[in-house]
Design a protein around this nucleic acid. Structure first.
Lengths: 141, 141
DNA sequence: CTATTATTCCGTTATATGGCGAAATATAAA
DNA sequence: TTTATATTTCGCCATATAACGGAATAATAG
């Protein structure tokens, strides 16, 4: 019951639903999520903690960045089924569709920024673009 | 999105989850639900309104009683899938299992005794168990 | 080392929510 | 009619929550 309520409470906020759906397209770092929903970083951070505690997302630390993505490993059944349910329920939601195109634009902006920084060399500086670029499209539907 | 949040908010409270799961076994009137969760009638009534607005349950008026049951007709897809999801998720939950046996005992009780227990006032006769007795077992799994 | 940057943690504030009891409503019985 | 009663609505209170700004933390840059 506690797990169930943790999940439903996590899902019962519009910002968190949008954040979760954004990750369905692939992992994003906090600053990208902040850009997407237009809330203060501290607010987004707290939302991500709630989603993480519900085992709906997981974080991957990479240098100064933390990339969040849909939880995949060692995930309780209830969180998995919740991921599927919200994915199916909000797939065609207007707000989510709008976020999806905003998300694409954010990724473009970030790509330019990352490339500019990368011209200064060093692999460590750019964790995501060098080596493995964060996978997109994580499925949630 | 509004519908989605209406449903998830409705599901994100333990009392409401218990009330909804209780109806999976068949319709119940408010006084029976009050007995089950041990909250004030006004509180249960408010919970049922929230569940009704989420289109998860529907009410059937029968004399002075109102029987609630899982919503079945003209129900939005999201509410239907939510019914299935919560049913699957909480089917074996300890609290829900305990409620299930409590529910059975409540059904055994005479309606007269049950209502007297709640009103705590004068002993009274009861408006008959005449007519139709509510159907049991509504499925939610 | 210090400075900068991304994120999280802390404290505060405004609003939302869950709970109750009393009053209102609607229906059945006397 | 009047009385009884099952349920809802209203008013209130205590707690929970979402939002922010700023301090603290962690990692890189100079």
């Amino acid at each position: 019951m506690i797990e169930f309520l943790s999940v439903t409470k996590a899902l019962s906020d519009e910002s968190r639903a949008r954040l979760l759906m954004a990750l369905a397209g692939g992992e994003l770092c906090v600053c990208q999520l902040v850009e997407l929903v237009g809330l203060a970083p501290s607010t987004v951070s707290k939302h991500m903690l709630i989603l993480k505690q519900a085992r709906l997302v997981e974080g991957r630390k990479c240098g100064r960045w933390i990339f969040y993505r849909l939880a995949k490993r060692n995930v309780p059944q209830i969180s998995l089924s919740a991921q599927k349910w919200i994915g199916k329920s909000l797939r065609d939601d207007p707000t989510i569709l709008r976020d999806r195109s905003r998300r694409a634009k954010i990724l473009e902006l970030d790509a330019e920024e990352l490339c500019r920084k990368q011209s200064r060399r060093t692999v460590r500086k750019l964790p995501s673009t060098t080596g493995e670029r964060p996978r997109q499209s994580d499925s949630l539907n």
